[in-house]
Amino acid sequence: MDKISGEDLRVRRLNNHSNIINFCSVNDDLNNFLKDDALLAQDNMTSITYLCFWRRVVVGFATLVAATIEVKQVEGPRIDGYAPNTYPSIKLARLAVDKNHTGRGIGPHLLFWVMGKFEKISKEIGCRYLTVDSKRESMWFYEKYDFILVEKTRNKTHPTFYLDMYLTRGKK
């Protein structure tokens, strides 16, 4: 299927009236999350979900939460510049595209939208990294956009990636 122009895609926050019933990605966990948990989590203020619409139909979604990266001091040579610390991040907790519309640019559109949202938030609340626990079959997607793989998680069911958003500072 053809790529969809970004101008024809709309991103809106999930709400009580969102028609998500027909959304179906290849991953049942993600579908179940959207249908059963997303709104409740939003009410509980534990995650916020954004829907991507094409011709008024939900074709993708992304869920965001505040998160943190902890760097542990380790045995061996001292890490240059190390200070025991945690670093603020935003986690892309869920990302899915409807299986009838994969390969049409919706995943990248949502990911870029999330980066734009990140930039806005990071001007008001300190946060520097965008993190994600990938599906094994989707690692290529995050590698394509220069996310850094956490090597220790490479062989896990959900390998973890992070993207340093530092460049967003001052680059209007």
């Binding site: 542990k72 380790v74 956490v150 992070y162």
Partner: peptide, 22 residues
């Protein structure tokens, strides 16, 4: 509750080194 989302990423060893360098 919504399904658990792990909010804390812990970096150690080489991952920690790469992170701090970045």
């Amino acid at each position: 509750m919504a399904k658990q989302i792990d909010l804390k990423l812990v970096l150690e060893d080489e991952d920690a080194r790469i992170f701090m360098d970045g």
